[in-house]
Design a binder for these strands. Structure first.
Lengths: 194, 194, 194, 194
DNA sequence: GATGAATGAGCGTTCATTCAT
DNA sequence: CATGAATGAACGCTCATTCAT
């Protein structure tokens, strides 16, 4: 289905080269149609972009939602570690989507600037909640030292932020995993020791 | 001096709207000259961009260099904390430069893609070195627990990476400082406890 | 019947916005079909236009023909006045058709330029004939002063031309009727006095 | 000067083929430049059109103004007749301008529809005034029969309206002049006889 | 009959760049 | 140094038209 292919190619190219750096003609060419064919499915370049953006947000929210819903049969440590791993898996499963989302978050196209914050807010909240839950539980069952939850959450979020940058910065998976493990190890040390 | 103003405005606009999203005419207009005047100083748009980029790299390197050279009269904890604070100060002193650098690093313009890694390498190395020095010293004088240096360094770098993203993501300085302090506190806990 | 609705909407839109200013998609949308459906009935945009044009000409000719055929039981004055009134009625009954016709006459679409004169010729002749008949009769029965017929006809035609412009220029019917009456009164004065 | 040539060619082509029927590329080609050169002088197609329109209005107003100012040394009859002749001269001197103006008046481009009435209002008023003056004077000095001024003015305006249509409809000057003379003769008959 | 998909041609517009002044 | 004029290339978009279904 052309419409879908267009959206996917668009997401990849917009993620790689930005909104202004991507010509509709490129998108069309990769899909194997001529440029005006795009207008049979999308009202404008902006519409195509926004459709891709909405999908990316939905995918991201769905992923975060899954994270929240996951059965908590694991130990606190494993449960937190699992968040990082799942995030990494998510990046690997659809790196284009994530590159597109990260770009939209940090350097939104001009027409997106006003909507962007709200768009990411929901995901942000859900992720924060998921982490908080695990941490509160960890404190309760004694696997984490009793510290202000905010501190534990903030620094874990910082962990994920740093990793998301590094994922796109470092091309080697090996290196990335080393960073992930090292960073988590340190976090865990700080979190459970006195 | 027109030449300088051009470079500065270019850096800001390239940082805000990207290479493709910034027209030479905008840059010229902000400086108060007509577009062709740019060509009296720069051979092309790419040249203007690269000049700005080189300056950003130099400034960043200089900053990192300063960090390395700083007299180590402080305790290890204060010394590491100071890195974060200095980084934050640097962001605040020239946010445009940093936005421009971050954008160039994560989403380089097409013609930069091949040079980009090398460009950031030096700074990266220097920063790593600066951190490493402090950490090794910290281990030696017993203020840090004896752990693989790589782990301590990786996770500290992850700290700075996360913070740099958050600086541009969160607009409130207060919130940012809370995140910084919380994240550092946790890091330090993990680093010096057993 | 779709075919007919298409022609009617086309006539209105071509009259309002001209040939180039009217997209087939607009016509289709107003009729409630998709653009390609037009091609089931008309070979091309030009064909649709020409069909509408032919109909307009036929309607105009029919109207003029009726005028000619009208039983001459009225006085000369009433008979001439009646022409103006009938014309006005015709405008009111199908203003779209008349707007379309006037536009085609004064500013024909490029492909019509060569046919246009001939198309209006017949109507012109018939109208001239109708007027002439009444005037000749008026002279014969003494209700009009004996003057060159050409002069009486030319100036009456000028009357109708001026009124047709004014009908589309002035939006108020009241104002238009005042102009009509005043202009006719003066004409009649000139025509029957010495 | 390119800017001026552009405006003149634009006025002619817009008058001949309408706003939508005229491509900027045609205008540019006739002037001997490439299309984008237009944008060095005019902000958009609409701007070019409006500039031409404003000039046409000014020329028309100037012409009407001259008419008003003309010394009234002539007899009433000659004075009124002169208006028609001057109008004809004006058409002949710049037929493109007049065709453009007439088209704009009767079939304004969509973006002009709201401004158009006001734009022609001033000229309209001035012309009406010029005619009124002559007619009032004619009544006062007895060369015109004492009749409602409105009637005399309305019907004279109808005369000019009809003639302006006929000027563009009939291509032959001879025919046009015959119509003009005949129509005026009748008008005058009606105006001065009882 | 009618539609969805697709296209070729063309349009208005922007932009980096050149060049004479 | 700086500008006005101009251009080639490209872009987003519209539209009449075709064709398989």
């Amino acid at each position: 289905m052309t419409k879908n292919k267009l959206k996917e190619v668009a997401m990849r190219l917009f993620g790689e080269k930005g909104y202004d750096g991507t010509a509709l003609s490129e998108i069309a060419k990769e899909v194997g149609v001529k440029t005006p064919a795009i207008y049979a499915f999308y009202a404008s370049k902006e519409d195509l972009f926004m459709t891709a953006f909405r999908e990316a947000m939905e995918a991201y929210n769905a992923f975060t939602h899954e994270l929240t819903e996951e059965k908590q049969e694991l130990s606190t440590r494993e449960s937190l570690y699992r968040i990082l791993v799942r995030q990494c898996e998510f990046y690997e499963k659809s790196p284009e989507l994530n590159r597109f989302a990260l770009r939209s978050l940090l350097f939104p196209a001009s027409f997106l600037k006003e909507t962007i914050e709200q768009a990411f807010l929901e995901s942000d909240k859900m992720l924060t909640k998921a982490i908080e839950d695990r941490i509160v539980q960890g404190i309760e069952n004694g696997s984490l030292k009793d510290r202000p939850v905010e501190m534990l959450v903030d620094s874990f979020l910082n962990l994920t932020d740093g990793l998301s940058m590094e994922y796109f910065y470092y091309s080697s998976k090996e290196l990335y995993m080393r960073k992930l493990n090292n960073a988590f190890e340190m976090y865990w040390n700080g979190a459970c020791s006195s």
